[in-house]
Amino acid sequence: MAHRLAIESEHIRADMVEAMEFPHLANKYQVFGVPRTVINETTHVEGMVPEATLVEALLQAVSAGE
């Protein structure tokens, strides 16, 4: 779904990161369960969530950063 958001908006880029191959990043972002979505380094979304929930978190992260 993150990749779909990147396709939709030219302002959004989305990385899928394999946690086992990049343990230093998993550690940095405190990944204990997957999927874990990190938005702009600051906001986290835990687990598989409905589209609307992810979009809500996304908008919150954007407005927090403004």
Partner: peptide, 27 residues
Amino acid sequence: ESGLSEATVAAVADIHTPVHLQVFVTP
């Protein structure tokens, strides 16, 4: 095409600052 819902398409149209999503997964 993103295939996202109309509501999502409308919501992200209002985003004008860079957003970086990192989704951590395991095999």
